[in-house]
Design a protein around this nucleic acid. Structure first.
Length: 262
DNA sequence: TACTCATGAGCAA
DNA sequence: TGCTCCTGAGTAG
């Protein structure tokens, strides 16, 4: 389930399991030829910005991974399992194997390329920022845009780590119509979106699933109860009982409540 | 077995 | 806006 919370969880797991260790890296599928560049190297640390994960093996030896819509990680304890299906990359130390399937990006880059990628990424609600500069960057970017807020939240240059589920849920929680242009948002609404993103993504990191209903933030109630509007088209809104609407916006499914989000 | 769908994003037009 | 790529799960027949 690759929105930002998943990627941060995986980066944390990599730091715990593989940080400071020499990794065996290969590509059973054969489509990750750069595996040889990092095979036998020590992992200094893993980091995440939005939906991108970076494995730092050296100043100029960074593995960039983006799961895209289908990418998945699986961790195995004990003896490395037999390869089943399309495994793009495998990372292993004695007793632990991490398998990567279906990523959009899995490439080795140097510090220059890393700087280019990083510069393109908007503020990440999961990266701590005590002075509030990240919020200011997000707010400034939204305020100067006439694009609908529903599209801006999906733009990783505006805010990184938000995907289709969080987009729909955060706007519902803020009672903001997704068609409202960014420039029309009030400072209070921008603050609400940012603060809620910080809170919800952190909850996502803890649970590993996207829970957005306050009454369930401490415990996963199961798929059917987790969210307010996502994948609930035609069903009554949990607050106002109006039917949840599904529209296609920029090729993606956009869910909202026409009653609560006027 | 065949088809559809999905939490993403780059690119051309 | 539409097309493309990546992979596996779920469903229809």
């Amino acid at each position: 389930m690759p929105e930002g919370h998943t990627v941060h969880r995986i980066a944390n797991e990599f730091n715990e399991l593989f940080g400071g260790k020499v990794l065996r890296v290969d590509s059973p599928q054969g489509r990750f030829a750069d595996a040889r560049l990092v095979n036998g190297q020590k992992l200094i640390r893993a980091s995440a910005v939005g939906k991108q994960m970076f494995l730092h093996f050296g100043e100029d030896l960074v593995l960039r991974i983006h799961l895209g819509i289908y990418g998945k990680w699986q961790f195995h304890r004990g003896v490395a399992p037999e390869v089943i299906g399309q495994v793009r990359a495998r990372f292993a130390i004695k007793g632990i194997t991490a398998e990567l399937r279906g990523p959009t990006v899995c490439e080795v880059i140097d510090s220059t390329a890393l700087a280019v990628v990083s510069k393109r990424l908007g503020p990440d609600p999961l990266n701590p920022d005590p002075v509030g500069a990240e919020f200011e960057r997000f707010a400034a970017r939204v305020k100067k845009s006439s694009t609908a807020i529903g599209l801006l939240l999906m733009n990783q240059e505006v805010i990184s780590g938000i995907g289709n589920v969080y987009r729909a849920e955060i706007l519902f929680r803020a009672r903001i119509n997704p068609h409202l242009p960014g420039a029309a948002l009030k400072p209070k609404q921008l603050r609400a979106i940012w603060d809620d993103s910080v809170m919800l993504l952190n909850v996502g990191v803890v649970h590993g699933v996207m829970i957005t209903r306050d009454e369930f933030l401490a415990e996963d109630p199961g798929k059917a109860e987790r969210n307010w509007v996502y994948k609930r088209e035609g069903q009554p809104c949990r607050k106002c009982r109006k039917k949840i609407v599904l529209e296609i916006a920029a090729g993606r499914k956009l869910y909202f409540c026409p009653g609560c989000q006027r």
